[in-house]
Deep mutational scan, measured.
Amino acid sequence: EDNEEPDPLPDNWEMAYTEKGEVYFIDHNTKTTSWLDPRLAKKAK
């Protein structure tokens, strides 16, 4: 069984939802937002 907990978001990142219910990510370090999960970006490298 694969019950892995997702990795926590990096420091100062926040997950948020648009009015349409779409997930996006806020990077408080750089005051930017991203559609890409920063956790996935790390694994892709």
Rank of each mutant, 00 (worst) to 15 (best):
E1A: 10
E1I: 00
E1W: 03
E1L: 11
E1M: 10
E1D: 11
E1P: 12
E1K: 14
E1S: 08
D2P: 12
D2V: 14
D2W: 11
D2R: 14
D2C: 15
D2N: 14
D2K: 15
D2Y: 14
D2E: 08
D2A: 15
N3W: 14
N3G: 10
N3M: 14
N3F: 11
N3Y: 13
N3D: 06
N3Q: 14
E4A: 13
E4Q: 15
E4M: 15
E4C: 12
E4V: 13
E4L: 13
E4R: 15
P6I: 09
P6V: 13
P6R: 13
P6Q: 14
P6M: 13
P6C: 10
P6E: 08
P6K: 10
P6G: 12
P6Y: 11
D7W: 12
D7L: 14
P8L: 13
P8D: 08
P8R: 14
P8S: 10
P8N: 07
P8E: 10
P10Y: 03
P10W: 04
P10R: 03
P10S: 04
P10L: 04
P10D: 05
P10T: 04
P10F: 02
P10G: 04
P10I: 02
D11H: 11
D11E: 13
D11W: 10
D11G: 09
D11Q: 15
D11P: 09
N12G: 15
N12M: 06
N12D: 08
N12C: 08
N12H: 14
N12V: 01
N12Y: 02
W13L: 05
W13R: 02
W13C: 07
W13V: 06
E14V: 06
E14F: 01
E14D: 09
E14C: 08
E14R: 04
E14W: 00
M15W: 07
M15N: 02
M15L: 11
M15P: 06
M15A: 04
M15E: 10
M15C: 08
A16Y: 04
A16W: 02
A16E: 07
A16S: 12
A16T: 05
A16L: 05
A16D: 05
A16I: 03
A16V: 06
A16G: 09
Y17G: 05
Y17T: 11
Y17K: 10
Y17H: 14
Y17L: 13
Y17M: 10
Y17I: 13
Y17S: 11
Y17V: 12
Y17N: 11
T18V: 00
T18F: 00
T18P: 00
T18G: 05
T18Q: 00
T18Y: 00
T18R: 00
T18S: 10
T18A: 06
E19S: 11
E19R: 09
E19P: 12
E19A: 14
E19Y: 06
K20M: 12
K20D: 11
K20S: 12
K20A: 11
K20P: 05
K20E: 13
G21P: 01
G21K: 08
G21V: 00
G21M: 08
G21L: 05
G21I: 00
G21Q: 10
G21W: 02
G21E: 08
E22W: 03
E22P: 01
E22L: 06
E22K: 07
E22G: 05
E22Q: 09
E22C: 05
V23L: 10
V23W: 06
V23E: 11
V23A: 05
V23G: 09
Y24Q: 01
Y24E: 01
Y24A: 01
Y24G: 01
Y24C: 03
Y24S: 01
F25Q: 07
F25Y: 02
F25R: 01
F25L: 00
F25K: 02
F25P: 00
F25S: 01
F25G: 01
I26S: 01
I26F: 03
I26R: 05
I26W: 01
I26D: 00
I26M: 13
D27E: 03
D27C: 03
D27N: 08
D27M: 00
H28S: 05
H28E: 02
H28K: 06
H28P: 02
H28Q: 06
H28G: 04
H28L: 06
H28W: 05
N29S: 12
N29T: 11
N29R: 10
N29Q: 08
N29W: 08
N29A: 13
N29E: 10
T30W: 03
T30G: 07
T30V: 05
T30A: 09
T30C: 07
T30E: 08
T30R: 07
T30P: 00
K31E: 10
K31M: 12
K31I: 03
K31V: 04
K31Y: 07
K31W: 07
K31G: 10
K31R: 12
T32A: 10
T32G: 05
T32N: 05
T32F: 00
T32W: 06
T32P: 00
T33A: 04
T33L: 02
T33I: 03
T33P: 00
T33H: 00
T33D: 00
T33M: 03
T33V: 06
T33C: 13
T33K: 03
S34A: 04
S34P: 06
S34W: 01
W35A: 03
W35H: 04
W35T: 04
W35S: 04
W35D: 03
W35P: 01
W35C: 03
W35I: 03
W35R: 05
W35L: 05
W35M: 07
L36R: 10
L36A: 09
L36G: 07
L36I: 15
L36T: 08
L36Q: 07
L36F: 07
L36V: 13
L36S: 08
D37I: 01
D37L: 01
D37A: 04
D37N: 07
D37Y: 01
D37F: 00
D37G: 03
D37H: 02
D37V: 02
P38V: 00
R39N: 06
R39Y: 01
R39I: 02
R39C: 04
R39H: 04
L40A: 14
L40R: 12
L40E: 13
L40S: 11
L40N: 15
L40Q: 13
L40G: 14
L40M: 12
L40K: 15
A41R: 10
A41F: 09
A41G: 15
A41L: 06
K42A: 15
K42R: 13
K42G: 12
K42L: 14
K42Y: 11
K42N: 13
K42C: 15
K42M: 12
K42E: 13
K42Q: 14
K43F: 08
K43R: 13
K43W: 07
K43I: 08
K43S: 11
K43E: 15
K43A: 14
K43D: 13
A44V: 12
A44W: 09
A44R: 10
A44G: 12
A44L: 09
K45W: 12
K45G: 14
